[in-house]
């Protein structure tokens, strides 16, 4: 008997009861098969025998969950009992990041700025065509066919639609092709804008293209050099100069070679030459002035001959107004300038 009892005891131990006592009821969401246990851990047990404690705890909780599942409505599908899960209550966090909003097209952006909204919310895709007495889609499948049927005959001499002598069918065809091309261009442009791709410029360049004068100068220089003869026969505007910073990239621009540093003796020689040339040009002017006998004629000749040199002399606030004061013939009084 002892043996039987022992075996029975073993069996009782191995088959644990399905009813589990919990201080706090588990929160169970059958939809996601989730059970959340908010009970406090038994600290002593957790420390002394962690593995067995956690194992038992998990077993109990799973038992509670399975009890709940058995309480669900069941169905029999091909000799298998299937429980029907209700809608999940627990909101699982997203596995992936939230997708970014699609970049707006140019029109959408414009409409947003101007506050333009399409009035019809649920626009139908089809319209009633009275000619054909049929519902015809506005675009896409079967639209082209319907158009073909509608326009099987076109009046040639309709001045509002077609210019004289033009084949109306080809005209409409080209118009459609142009429309498609335009649409495609706009689509690509929107795509480029969304991907931040720089497009080649189209049309007349504006200030947007040339932010400062140097860019403009560079553009003109490159444009001039962009001929078969590298701009050799291109005429220049008065005082037009090549842009400096792009000389290495543009062929045909004369590069000024930097002078080799002069020695002191060479420099002196150069200065001497320079001084002599200046004095030579100067002396001729002085010579004209020198032998003037009378005062009046001297004045006139002086003001004629020396005007250039007097102009060069700048000296701050007290700048002599070369010859200008003489315009007023009545006042011969000098001294302080009255303004």
């Amino acid at each position: 008997m002892d043996v039987v009892n022992a075996i029975l005891e073993k069996n009782v131990n191995s088959n644990k009861s399905i009813s589990v006592h919990k201080d706090l009821e588990l929160e169970i969401d059958e939809g996601t098969l989730l059970a959340s246990d908010y009970n406090v851990f038994d600290k002593e047990n957790l420390r002394s025998s962690q593995d067995t404690y956690l194992k038992n705890l998990t077993r109990d909780n799973v038992q509670v969950l399975i009890n709940k599942i058995w309480m669900l409505q069941t169905e029999r599908v091909d000799e298998a009992i299937v429980g029907i899960l209700p809608k999940p209550v627990f909101v699982l966090p997203r596995a992936r990041s939230v997708p970014k909003p699609k970049p707006l097209t140019k029109w959408q952006q414009f409409a947003k700025e101007k506050g333009i909204t399409s009035k019809k919310k649920n626009k139908s895709k089809v319209t009633w065509d009275e000619e054909l007495e049929k519902w015809i889609p506005k675009y896409g499948y079967k639209k082209a066919k319907a158009d073909e049927q509608k326009e099987w005959l076109v009046e040639v001499n309709d001045p509002t639609k077609f210019t004289n002598g033009e084949d109306p069918f080809t005209a409409s065809k080209t118009a459609k092709r142009e429309k498609q091309a335009k649409n495609e261009l706009q689509r690509l442009r929107n795509l480029a804008k969304a991907k931040n791709v720089k497009l080649p410029r189209v049309g007349i360049p504006s200030t947007e293209h040339f932010r400062d004068a140097r860019q403009l100068a560079a553009a003109t220089t490159i444009a001039r050099a962009s001929t078969a003869s590298v701009g050799k026969f291109q005429s220049r505007l008065p005082k037009e100069k090549d842009a400096k910073d792009i000389a290495s990239h543009v062929p045909g621009i004369k590069k000024k070679r930097k002078e080799a540093p002069l020695s002191v003796v060479q420099e002196k020689q150069r200065n001497k030459k320079l001084a002599e040339s200046i004095l030579r040009s100067k002396s001729t002017i002085l010579h004209v002035d020198a032998p003037v006998p009378s005062t009046k004629s001297a004045k006139s000749s002086n003001s004629g001959g020396k005007k250039k040199s007097s102009k060069k002399e700048g000296k701050g606030a007290k700048k002599p107004k070369g010859g200008k004061g003489k315009r007023d013939l009545r006042s011969k009084v000098g001294g302080r300038k009255r303004r």
């Binding site: 002399e313 000296k315 007290k318 002599p320 011969k332 009084v333 000098g334 001294g335």
Partner: peptide
């Protein structure tokens, strides 16, 4: 020249 007229501009 009369006595008050400028002979030389100051630099």
């Amino acid at each position: 020249a009369d006595p008050m007229s400028t002979i030389c501009f100051h630099q």
